[in-house]
Amino acid sequence: MKLGLQLGYWGAQPPANAPELVAAAEAAGYDAVFTAESWGSDAYTPLAWWGSATERLRLGTSVVQLSARTPTATAMASLTLDHLSGGRHILGLGVSGPQVVEGWYGQPFAKPLARTREYVDIVRKVLDRKEPVTSDGPHYPMPYTGEGASGLGKPLKPITHPLRADIPIWLGAEGPKNVALTAEIADGWLAIYYSPRLAPMYNKWLDEGFARPGARRTREDFEIAATCQVIVTDDRAATLAAQKPIMALYIGGMGAPELNFHAQVYRRMGYDAVVDEVTELFRSGRKDAAAEAIPDEMVTETMIVGNRDEVRDGLRRWEDAGVTMLLVACRDADHVRSLADVVLG
């Protein structure tokens, strides 16, 4: 089992101790560090800034949003960081949701699967650099010949020769079709709210993708990086209670009530009634009550919490379920080191 440090995206201000966390992760044997973006800080700038002080850690995005950049712009950022890091970049991509895509980026959200396939194909063409990049579209036509086009667009190859044509591309995916597509066209899956109990269901989705003609990987060389809070504590009850307000936000407040991908994940786990209650309470302003409505077992579906022995048992369950890396968030350097001692020791 490998560890990845998830720095995430910024809140109102940049995190003060990120360089300390990154240095501790590299010293403690973590495999990678990841940054994210929502509608504030971007993913690439902090990854390059903090990553410049590292020598071994892989530098990943978890995730950059498709609608934030054209495929060629993402490929440019990816090949640039891969050069600067000596071949340590992981490109993590995700479609986000309609509220962000249409509300923040001003782009249509429709056909996320088709857009993802086309986007990844263009990125790979740029990195491959065998010929000028073209795409028939319909989502990212190159050259552009639609309304307002000058007619002067010409297919191009990147001026800079990519260090690696096979920069790993991992996709953030939650639903069955998205996960199958990930297994077909990507090098890894960034799984949020992963539950080892549902591994047979995930494996079915993954196997569908691996079995498709032209699939890029097999299960043996495919990475599954799952976001997972790993908390070593003797006060399990208090720790679980502290996680519930965050879960209530994602289940009840993220996305539209009729289309919340995070809520759908928990519905697949069998928590329909809880999701309905949490959503109703959260959106009516009763956020504390929404958190209290979440049962303990719903928290531990997607987290590993307990004393040292309980955590080690949990780690074995996640590894047996097929997870190759845990993406963990840490509050300080001591937390980084303590998780390494339990997970990697």
Score class of each variant (00 low, 15 high):
4 G>P: 07
12 A>M: 08
14 P>C: 05
14 P>D: 11
16 A>N: 10
19 P>S: 05
25 A>Q: 09
42 D>W: 00
45 T>C: 13
49 W>K: 02
54 T>C: 08
55 E>I: 06
57 L>C: 08
61 T>K: 05
62 S>C: 14
65 Q>P: 07
68 A>L: 10
76 M>F: 08
79 L>H: 06
84 L>R: 03
84 L>E: 00
86 G>A: 08
88 R>V: 03
91 L>K: 04
93 L>N: 06
101 V>C: 00
112 P>E: 03
113 L>E: 01
115 R>G: 07
116 T>D: 02
124 R>V: 01
135 S>F: 08
141 P>S: 10
143 P>R: 03
144 Y>T: 10
146 G>C: 12
152 L>F: 06
156 L>Y: 11
164 R>D: 08
165 A>V: 10
169 I>T: 09
179 V>W: 03
188 G>Q: 15
194 Y>A: 12
195 S>N: 14
198 L>F: 07
214 G>Q: 11
227 T>Q: 15
230 V>G: 12
235 D>Q: 07
238 A>P: 06
241 A>D: 14
247 M>N: 01
250 Y>I: 13
253 G>L: 09
258 E>G: 06
264 Q>T: 08
265 V>K: 07
287 K>P: 09
290 A>S: 01
298 M>N: 00
303 M>T: 10
303 M>L: 09
329 A>H: 11
330 C>N: 14
345 G>I: 14
